[in-house]
């Protein structure tokens, strides 16, 4: 009751004229101040440092960043796939109402595959070479639902048809090495979708594929996301791929989100110097003989994090303030944030 009153009175209602008519959608996944450290005898690697974001249902979020920026780690921690003994995770991860970090091993297993699913980068190694595609899909189904063998097989066939594998009946009994890279990747998507997950995590699923097949798989993923109403978190270091599939983009550097916003905003009006430098260093119809601009320096050493802005040592516009104090995410425009002290002075 009280809640209703406040929403109707609050000035926010002006921004959202439909707020009273449709129920407020709560996020499918919510990550709050996530820190992930890998501890070994020699060093502690600060892989993820205070990452927060919300993912709305049916949204596709792309996390982009260079190798070692913590994008895959962020994703794997949402499924708690990191080696438990070496990893220290703090913060909050909530997926579909489940607090992932508080669940027992048994509970998290029920979540994996059923509500959160994942597709991997290498379709060759992510499928077991000694079992048929059909067997691997039915295994994933039967991990969660007590169905008969024939029922599981029927569903496996449906899944292969869902991911548009031609002559699915015969492909059911095929071994991974008998399929092409693109088909293998589709088969892996079929395994991941076997229990109709609400959240699909994709770890550079198109990186290992040919450019032509890459587009097909991206289009397929986008169609499936729409048909099944899934939320998708897509990790990539390919900005072209991100532009193709993303609703929202999070740019990560040294384990932090440095820019977050709609795909259009981030790619068209990048606010953070890192995002700008990254976009400038891609091929997009420059003169043939012009060298591509590069970002100088080396990726941040995650064992010894610098004080202040982590990108400052490589940043072209950094000031002394940047080396002293770490910036936090501030609004650039509506629903578009960046973590940089100089946002207002940059144009």
């Amino acid at each position: 009751m009280r809640n209703l009153q406040t929403t109707s009175v609050a000035p926010v209602a002006k921004d959202m004229p439909l707020a009273g008519k449709i129920p407020v959608v709560s996020p499918l996944a919510r990550v709050k101040d996530l820190n992930v450290q890998f501890r070994s005898r020699d060093a502690t690697v600060h892989a993820v440092n205070g990452v927060s974001f919300d993912l709305m249902p049916r949204d596709v979020l792309c996390i982009i960043g260079e190798s070692g920026s913590g994008k895959s780690v962020t994703m794997k921690s949402m499924m708690r796939l990191l080696p438990p003994k070496k990893t220290v995770m703090t913060g909050e991860i909530e997926v579909n109402g489940h607090k992932v970090l508080d669940l027992s091993e048994r509970q998290i297993r029920h979540l994996r595959g059923a509500e959160i699913s994942m597709i991997f980068q290498e379709p060759m190694t992510a499928l077991d070479p000694v079992y048929t595609i059909g067997r691997q899909i039915t295994e994933a189904i039967r991990a969660h639902e007590p169905v008969t063998t024939s029922e599981a097989r029927r569903r496996a066939l449906e899944l292969l048809e869902l991911v548009r594998i031609p002559s699915a009946v015969s492909r059911l009994d095929a071994y991974p090495h008998e399929l092409s890279g693109g088909l293998r990747q589709r088969a892996m998507i079929a395994v991941a979708l076997s229990c109709k997950p609400k959240l699909l995590l994709a770890d550079e699923p198109t990186t290992a594929l040919d450019a032509t097949v890459q587009i097909q798989v991206l289009v397929l993923l986008r169609q499936l996301q729409d048909e099944l109403g899934m939320g998708v978190i897509f990790v990539t270091h390919d900005i072209g791929v991100a532009a193709q599939i993303a609703d929202k983009i999070a740019v990560m550097y040294a384990g932090e989100i440095v820019e977050f916003g709609s795909a259009r905003d981030v790619l068209v009006n990048p606010a953070h110097p890192y995002t700008r430098a990254m976009l400038a260093s891609t091929v997009h119809g420059q003169a043939r003989d012009a060298d591509l601009p590069v970002i100088p320096g080396d990726p941040a050493d995650l064992r010894r994090l610098v004080a202040g802005c982590r990108f400052a040592p490589r940043c072209g516009v950094s000031k002394s303030l940047c080396l002293e104090r770490a910036p936090s995410l501030v609004g650039v425009a509506a629903h578009h944030d960046a973590a940089c002290h100089l946002i207002n002075s940059l144009t």
């Binding site: 796939l81 595959g113 059923a114 991997f120 992510a126 000694v130 395994v191 991941a192």
Partner: peptide, 29 residues
């Protein structure tokens, strides 16, 4: 260390079911 073990884990398989199918299946030969 291979991806398909992690992939199996990502579909919710327990340690023992991973051993039973994926590890023994591949170690057998």
């Amino acid at each position: 260390a291979l991806d398909y073990i992690e992939a199996a884990r990502a579909t919710g398989a327990s340690n023992w079911s991973i051993i039973r199918t994926h590890v023994i299946g591949n170690v057998l030969t």
